[in-house]
Design a binder for these strands. Sequence first.
DNA 1: TTCGAGGCTTGTGTATACACACCTCTCGGC
DNA 2: GCCGAGAGGTGTGTATACACAAGCCTCGAA
Lengths: 243, 243
Amino acid sequence: MKASDRAYASLRDDIVEWRLAPGTVLGEVEQAERLGVSRTPLREALARLTAEGLATAQRGRGVVVSDVSLAHLGELFELREALECKAASLAAQRGDRARFAALRDRLLAAPALLTDEDPQRSEYYALAAELDSAVDGAIANTYLSQSLEGLRVHLARVRRLAKDDAARLRQAAAEHAAIAGAIAEGNAPLAAAATAVHLNNSLNHIKSVQIHLPRPEDSTGPAVRTVPTHSTRPSAPREASHG
Amino acid sequence: MKASDRAYASLRDDIVEWRLAPGTVLGEVEQAERLGVSRTPLREALARLTAEGLATAQRGRGVVVSDVSLAHLGELFELREALECKAASLAAQRGDRARFAALRDRLLAAPALLTDEDPQRSEYYALAAELDSAVDGAIANTYLSQSLEGLRVHLARVRRLAKDDAARLRQAAAEHAAIAGAIAEGNAPLAAAATAVHLNNSLNHIKSVQIHLPRPEDSTGPAVRTVPTHSTRPSAPREASHG
DNA sequence: TTCGAGGCTTGTGTATACACACCTCTCGGC
DNA sequence: GCCGAGAGGTGTGTATACACAAGCCTCGAA
């Protein structure tokens, strides 16, 4: 594997797993030494992270780990609603119904996975990822799939804010099952609606749990895509409204 | 300005303006010499292009200008519908109504801009860009704005396929005016619907004009985002269905 | 004591050199 | 005559050195 790939994967994991906190300055020399690569591949890794929105290039200070805040969370979920509702709708039109029916049944049985023996809930999250993957395959749209993929990186990072308890995960499993069921029935509007419901509940859950976040005022500006030379709006985002 | 920025901007323009055709191999040494920069900043430029989806990294052959085909166009417009409908909806909820009312009126008067003295239709496209910009400002969502911005690069490239005539542009202006009007009224569902109508008409227009495209079979795989190591699906996309 | 200017230090931006991998062409063997 | 292996060449991947810009600390003057 290329050194730049290793550096990218390592930094990406460190950010998603919160080993690198938001606001951390990613000095080229420092990170290059830490990861055991030279500055050239590290710069490529930083460029990819910046393009993905996990890091932000700041004038003079170099690249810093991008901020995550409740304010940005509303924005993130608005984009998520746009993409995932569309994806669910397309999957309902094009997907393999049997596959989604099977996923629905497994999701309905998911509460059994939430045992004390799996504190990481890895089995549950694997099942949710399987649904994501099935939707990806069903929509047959590279642009949309890759946008979703880019979004999921941010969502994995945000998951640490959610502090999902067993009750919430049971509810989420039911919501996922509803989505899978709607897709299995080929009911596109229902699939989109079920997705909207699920996202709304997810966001409300995170908001109810996480009232305060570190550094809500220092907005380094989130980014979900490469932005050539683009304005980073410092204003406060409004309340997200789903409907 | 940094050399990498210059290289990026230059290559980006060359691709969007079709001076670099799809499938063109962007050799590092060759392009570095052509643009008068060293390989290091050029590699950064190529990485940004690849992240944006204008170029695709191919194993062994380096980076090539990504392909554009009618098949991919349907996928692109599906993503566009997801993002722009959401954006229009949010703008209707949050936008400055007077601003959009003014835009609506100017768009209704836009057919007067389509004179023979402006074969590039630059005034018209500037007005359309102004609507985009107003929506961007109104939605107050950095994630969504940047996703839209990334999309517009591809749309500018595709515009060359559209061969918009005056009749189509007059119709498009009316559709844009409908969108602006719905936003001005604060009617979110109507704004989304008007956007869906406009996109559907745009896509159908392009399809009706461009039946055949160069190299529809050699699918180098489009990408609208950075993709770490991601599957490029070779299958043919289905018909886009809007509504 | 405070403000400003200048030098130092740190870090990014760029160029270039080197290593390695893959592709290709050719030659030899079957 | 065809297939395979090896050598050469092209091009990417990586490391490193150098230049420059920005920030900071310090020293001097008001």
